[in-house]
């Protein structure tokens, strides 16, 4: 079966900074190949500077690669739409950004944030908008939706804002969500709620997810497969259990050893007796 998303030889270069390095280029994403299947969660894991956010931006088509193929349902969209993504592509591929404080507009209500993509992508209009907005809010756990719809972003916590960002990404009814460090700016006690929501969207609606993270523990919780990225290249890829329990590449081992709690056993299971 054709995978939902297939990336082949994806390459992105940036001009290196500084006056002495004028004309120099740095290859940030270096001939990367991978696939994301339907209803599959794939985590792209690496340190800062490994190129993982650039890959997210290339797939979301916020940036254009120098080389490679980006196939949705087997068709290379870089060939079909070389000058930028069509609305049809954006309808199918949506992105959730790291910073829920920067990604919402402070002067608009939550209803406004959700009505726009619903209308733009032809998912609802006129009298359908209100119930469609409420359904989206309820779906991401913001209830009662009637109350939340009228709020402005400043009235929400970081976790609630990230839920709005997820609702907005869901509005066009996409097939693939790209989430770039979706919980790294959230308070620790609510991170798990957002991760669980993403998993639930896959389980109940069959949405595919490309999770960009530096946190192997989150990847372990959510992903079916993990791709380990270093210096713009995928150095190891495999099912989650295999990567976490039997890493082959020295870089993967280093990442695992560096993770907080790597040397510690899990908290006692018995004490949570509520």
């Amino acid at each position: 079966m054709t995978p939902l998303l297939e990336v082949r030889g994806l390459t992105k270069r940036f001009a290196a900074g500084g006056t002495l390095a004028r004309g120099a280029v740095r290859t940030v994403v270096d001939a990367v190949d991978f696939q994301v299947g339907r209803a599959e969660i794939v985590a792209l894991v690496g340190e800062s500077g490994s190129g993982k956010s650039t890959i997210a931006r290339l797939i979301a088509r916020l940036d254009t690669p120098e080389a490679g193929a980006l196939c949705l349902d087997g068709e290379d969209v870089l060939v079909r739409e070389p000058r930028g993504a069509s609305r049809a592509y954006r309808r199918r591929v949506q992105m959730i950004f790291q910073d829920p404080f920067g990604s919402l507009n402070p002067v608009h209500t939550l209803a406004h944030h959700l009505e726009r993509p619903l209308e733009l992508h032809g998912r609802a209009s006129g009298a359908e908008l209100r119930p469609a907005v409420h359904a989206l809010l309820a779906q991401v756990g913001l209830s009662p939706p009637e109350e939340y719809a009228a709020l402005y972003p400043h009235a929400l916590s970081g976790g609630q804002r990230q839920r709005v960002a997820i609702a907005r990404a869901l509005a066009p009814q996409p097939e693939l969500l790209i989430a770039d460090e979706p919980t790294s700016m959230l308070d620790v006690s609510i991170r798990m709620g957002v991760l669980a929501l993403l998993r639930q969207l896959r389980d109940t609606r069959g949405i595919s997810l490309l999770l960009i993270t530096h946190d192997l523990a989150s990847a372990r919780f959510l992903a079916d497969r993990i791709l380990v990225l270093s210096g713009g290249r995928i150095v190891e890829a495999g099912p989650t259990a295999q990567i976490v329990d039997a890493p082959q590449h020295p870089y993967t081992r280093q990442l695992l050893a560096a993770a907080p709690g790597a040397t510690r056993t899990a908290p006692p299971a018995t004490s949570h007796g509520d």
């Binding site: 916590s157 976790g159 609630q160 308070d187 620790v188 006690s189 609510i190 991170r191 798990m192 709620g193 991760l195 669980a196 192997l216 523990a217 989150s218 372990r220 919780f221 976490v244 695992l256 993770a259 709690g261 790597a262 056993t265 899990a266 908290p267 299971a269 004490s271 949570h272 509520d274």
Partner: peptide, 24 residues
Amino acid sequence: RGLLHAFPSLHGSLSEVRAIEGTP
């Protein structure tokens, strides 16, 4: 207790992991 269970870990059961309900 909630915080100790709010982090996914690299070991142990994933079903033990859960968010603390509500917000600060």
